[in-house]
């Protein structure tokens, strides 16, 4: 290469702003979301699990437990599909944390920190893109369910159920984001998250009626926030009913965001 590298003269900014306004923050968040999207396009393997999980879990649980728990596969589906959706999406929310950690370990975050941009934009952008992942899991699981005979009668309630799941998963992902910002490695995030998520999703009303559980476990499963979300989704998909569980779930989501979003942002800025 013989090309002479030509550099442009320095420009001293005429207007220096001390703080970043809301408009710039929003546009920078969108840019970060755009970045996450082009990264996704370059690394499609990261989507493999997201796209395969709904198939595997729906088939596995429906045909394994359908007969034992509900008498037949088609009778089990109305209860099962909401459970698979919730489980899949909540598990997928962990990826927010692991990817954030991996991303922050690469040098590119040093550049983001040296740019005159809102400190929250990289976080907000990442969380925004993750909602696309949740939407994909929700839609795919519903599709797989429909293929094997799931016929929900909820009408618009099905759309509401999908939205409720996405909003809740987004709220939950703030927990993993905090873990991602503070943990040393992505593996740590994954490990801790699994430790919390496995009992939380299984000690719930996801796959078995809580009435079959021993006395000491039943109140735990009933109080489990995952149970509330699943019940809400079931009611919405089966009959389109907006029950108390929808409210409980939304309150839970708001509380999680109110607690974890400020903590995460603070931890991120301190690191940044």
């Amino acid at each position: 290469m013989t090309a002479l590298i030509e550099t442009r003269p320095a420009v001293f900014p005429t207007q220096l702003t001390k703080h970043i306004g809301l408009r710039d923050t929003v546009s920078q968040t969108f840019t970060m979301a755009y970045r996450a999207l082009i990264r996704l396009r370059r690394t499609p393997e990261q989507w493999a699990d997201v796209l395969l999980m709904p198939f595997i879990f729906t088939f596995m649980f429906a045909f394994l437990f359908g007969g034992a728990i509900a008498g037949s596969v088609s009778d089990y589906l109305p209860a099962l599909i909401p459970a698979i959706i919730v489980q899949g999406v909540v598990q997928a929310s962990v990826v927010t944390g692991t990817q954030l950690r991996e991303d922050m370990d690469t040098g590119v975050f040093d550049r983001f920190r040296s740019l005159p941009m809102a400190r929250i934009a990289p976080l907000a952008g990442a969380l925004m893109t993750d909602t696309i992942r949740y939407a994909a899991i929700t839609a795919l699981t519903m599709l797989v369910g429909a293929l094997i005979g799931w016929r929900p009668g909820g009408g618009w309630g099905i759309v509401l159920a999908g939205l409720l799941v996405i909003v809740t998963a987004w709220a939950v992902s703030w927990i993993w984001a905090l873990l991602g910002v503070t943990a040393r490695t992505a593996g740590t995030v994954q490990g801790i998250a699994m430790l919390i998520m496995m009992p939380l999703t299984f000690f719930s009303n996801a796959f078995v009626p809580t009435s079959t559980l021993p006395d000491w476990l039943r109140p735990v499963a009933d109080a489990n926030p995952v149970s509330h979300l699943i019940t809400a989704v079931r009611e919405l998909t089966i009959s389109g009913t907006v029950g108390w569980d929808v409210l409980w779930t939304l309150i839970g989501a708001v509380v999680i965001v109110a607690v974890f979003a400020p903590l995460t942002v603070r931890a991120y800025i301190r690191k940044a």
Binding site: L16, T17, K18, R39, G107, S114, P116
Partner: peptide, 23 residues
Amino acid sequence: EPNVVRQLIGVTGQYASVDEKVS
């Protein structure tokens, strides 16, 4: 005034601060 300073500087790190996965 970190934000003002950031408008005046360019930083090139010891290890390239670019995104490896995209073009």
